[in-house]
Nucleic acid binder design. Structure first.
Lengths: 349, 349
DNA sequence: CATTTTTCCTAAAACGATTTAGATTAAATC
DNA sequence: GATTTAATCTAAATCGTTTTAGGAAAAATG
């Protein structure tokens, strides 16, 4: 009863070319649109026909040509991760990517890295992707409190998710860490170690998470009757060498300092290098609280107080969020997630 | 004398849609193919016409639609970097990517990461890219001595370059490090420190560079009347924790060991953790030679002997190589490059 | 038996770019 | 002045897919 291919498949394979819908159509004696509709299980195609088409398709290894699909439908099956090319790309972004790539495995989607450079407008790559339809969804990193990219994407109704919050964050999926608590817990940890003069190496203040972190630490300091020292000039995005040099300078002028809060691996290493060059020992003369994405500092200097950010979880979650946004935009936007990962630090106290 | 647009541009912009060749054609009163040929500076188009077309194009911000171009020409303007999702992706691959992204800036090309998973055939992603035309060129990482991917790409005539050599490497552009020398110099450095029992944590032996490295070290050991200890079971691609655990075990059985050669940052950290847990001090009880992509170990333990691999240079060079292969395949293949980066290590001796 | 409905398929157009072949006009040649 | 040549443009086809509209045959209805 089952329908038969019109042309033997070996004949089609003899002169090799990448199979298209046309190939299947010729082999099965059907029209191209019929094949197309059969493959996507449309209701107006006979089930015997569908079976035949699917059989031929798998037999000759048919894969839809992305350019054809994209031209006709606008779909690219690409997720774009927007990353700054600054040094952060080296560490936490790599983990993020690895998690996303794993999450996308088995789906038709690919991950593409859309870089932007410190000297150019962060809007440029975002506009490019939206206007050319280079991707089906965007994932933004390192949001600012009043992020123009987020505003733009919301206005355009383009699917996206952010790693970090902004003032618009109630309106879209995001993944963020509770940096307010990080600031607070870091200070409390240091106070418990009898430290009184705390300097914070925060991220540059344009980033939303920098503000949270600083606010948390400041409030905690005020509650303890302390002052938090923090300066834009020494920040956690600088290179190890830069931090080392600046902290060395700093300690000459402010010898009373006895604690540092570091927002990155680089910063923690830089501070350590400066301290040790001055003959100071971590955990004895000074204490350092640090936050990092890759579990490394604990091995570097075991007496550091470490908080881990689970970037892998972020990558996984963000991927799921944008896939949802692409394929089921009608569903309520995904819950905004917020994971405090301070158990470790609190245990260390 | 200069030709004028037929329709005022404001009119076209009023109802916003992404401009195409058709938009330019309507505005300038020309046919679509004429516009296309004018934009690519074809010889049979009047220079006045070209001027007009170019003016209109920039004015309305025309950008060719990638799907249109790809469908017609097969060109994607994508370079695919094939990466294993194993832990190496975290460190050296991130640098590689950053360098490539910077190198591609200003060109029409994009970088896409094509992952492959340890449990799948490395051929899969390569075949996929070639057969679907997902990219214009490939960059392979971590070659094996008899790399099936390289063989396949050579047979197909698909543009590519490799990071690492193989038996086919005379036939295509590659970037590699002189690991033979690394092995030799590492041993010589340790001998000079009066070490006699050297264990090497090499990469898994399927990798070409592992073989070079081991051979270099073995030959040097033989020349010095020593034996090189090396085992597949403890390799440089394992996690820090795994290395620590295995080396701890190892030192119980082989207490005479007084030196390690580590082929990765992870391995060096893992070995350090194991040694220090046993109360041994680097540079005193033991010596470690290590090779890494990110200048980090020197800060971690200053007495380690470090060799840097310039992965940034690799990324830059590989990009240039594949662009050349795409755009001027007729030119003699780029010189195969080989950079020994041992000056630092030799200085340390 | 004539008519309507259902089922299942095809034809044609469209997405945006490029290429091949051909057409028109002007300039050059005899 | 007729013919060739050069210069410059247009028409049509194509890449692979999807969508809309419509058509033919079979089945159901009166």
């Amino acid at each position: 009863m089952s329908k038969q291919p019109k042309v033997p498949i070996s004949a089609a394979l003899a002169s090799y070319r990448k199979p298209t819908l046309k190939t299947i159509a010729e082999l099965s004696g059907l029209a191209v649109p019929t094949v197309s509709r059969a493959l996507k299980d449309a209701p107006d195609i006979n089930s015997e026909t569908k079976k035949l088409v699917r059989k031929v398709a798998t037999e000759i290894g048919y894969v839809p040509h992305p350019a054809g699909v994209r031209l006709r439908t606008g779909r690219t099956f690409v997720i774009s991760l927007v990353l700054s090319t600054s040094n952060e790309m080296m560490t936490h972004a790599a983990r993020l990517m690895a998690a996303m790539v794993k999450e996308l495995r088995g789906t038709p989607y690919h991950l593409i890295i859309t870089p932007f450079f410190p000297d150019e407008d962060p809007m440029t790559p975002v506009r490019y992707v939206v206007e050319t339809g280079a991707a089906d969804a965007l994932i933004l990193n390192e949001t600012t409190p009043d992020d123009a990219r987020v505003k733009y994407l919301l206005e355009r109704g383009f699917p996206f998710a952010t790693h970090g919050r902004s003032r618009y964050c109630e309106q879209h999926p995001y993944f963020d860490y509770d940096n307010l608590s990080f600031g607070r817990i870091a200070v409390e940890a240091l106070v418990q170690k009898k430290r009184r003069f705390i300097w914070m190496l925060a991220p540059p203040p344009q980033h939303n998470y920098a503000l949270n972190m600083i606010e948390g630490a400041k409030t905690a300091c005020t509650n303890q009757g302390l002052t938090l020292y923090v300066s834009e000039a020494i920040n956690s995005e600088q290179s190890i060498e830069e931090v080392t040099q600046k902290v060395t300078e700093l300690l000459k002028n402010e010898p009373q300092l006895d604690a540092f809060i570091c927002a990155s691996t680089n910063a923690a290493i830089g501070v350590t290098a400066a301290l040790e060059a001055l003959g100071k020992t971590i955990g004895v003369d000074m204490d350092i609280v640090a936050k990092e994405a890759i579990p490394f500092l604990k091995l570097f200097r075991p007496r550091m107080l470490i908080m881990q950010e689970d970037v892998t979880a972020a990558g996984t979650w963000l991927c799921q969020a944008v896939l949802q946004a692409i394929e089921h935009p009608e569903r309520a936007p995904l819950q905004n997630l917020e994971i405090p990962q301070f158990a470790e630090l609190e245990k260390q106290l």
